[in-house]
Amino acid sequence: MAFTTPGLSGSDATTVIDALQERLSALNDLHLTLKHIHWNVVGPNFIGVHEMIDPQVELVRGYADTLAERIATLGGSPSGTAKAIEHDRSWDDYSIGRDTVQAHLAALDLVYDGFVVSHRNAIETTGKVDPVTEDILIGQTAELEKFQWFVRAHLESSTGDLGHGGSTTEKGAADAVR
């Protein structure tokens, strides 16, 4: 690395860049997953969910751009290729095809569970050395948690239960709410 931002050591910048690259790949994968759901959701309430997903796709794409630019600011080279997603992936590919609103939303809730936990882990890693990056990730996490709340509102019963509660796989969550 030829340079980094003032006040950040090269080794700290590398730590932050590595964390951000994994999150960049995760965001790129999430935006593709959201688009896949958008194209494959069917049944009652289709249009509401179909239209609810598009703004989230745009938000997630913007988050990816922000992280890529932060990587470059720190002296790194962001990788936004399909190969980078595959290389950085520690999660399974989204497993639901054409299916009902409820099935996709239950599966998406699990996707957000994993995504938010990983973003929070990146907050912990970066916050120790770079509060600017930590702040970026905190803002993104807050909005992603809010969107997960929107998803859960479609799934929640009047008693506050989620019909797929306790499911550990996307297919299991989808099966539980069909």
Rank of each mutant, 00 (worst) to 15 (best):
I17L: 12
V42N: 08
V16A: 05
L34N: 07
S158E: 14
L24H: 01
T133D: 05
D65Y: 04
S9I: 02
H50D: 00
V101N: 06
A142S: 13
G76T: 02
V132F: 07
N121C: 15
R98Q: 14
N45E: 11
N40Y: 04
L162F: 00
P131A: 12
D109Y: 06
D65E: 02
G7K: 05
G166E: 00
A153C: 15
H36M: 04
R23K: 11
D92E: 02
V117T: 12
Q56K: 15
E58C: 14
L20S: 05
A26F: 07
R61C: 13
N45L: 13
E69C: 03
P6I: 04
V116D: 04
I53E: 01
Y112F: 09
S79E: 14
T168W: 04
D92P: 09
H154A: 02
K83C: 12
M1D: 05
H154P: 10
L110K: 00
I138N: 13
G62P: 11
V151R: 01
L155A: 01
T133K: 05
T141Q: 07
R120G: 07
I96Y: 01
V117H: 12
L67K: 12
L34R: 07
V49T: 08
V42G: 03
S90V: 10
L108A: 07
S9K: 09
H119W: 12
A106Y: 05
G48D: 06
A64E: 08
I37L: 04
S90F: 10
M52A: 15
V111G: 03
V111A: 04
A174K: 00
M1P: 09
D29S: 06
R70C: 05
G163C: 07
L59A: 14
I37A: 00
V57H: 06
S167A: 13
Q21M: 04
T169R: 01
T133L: 11
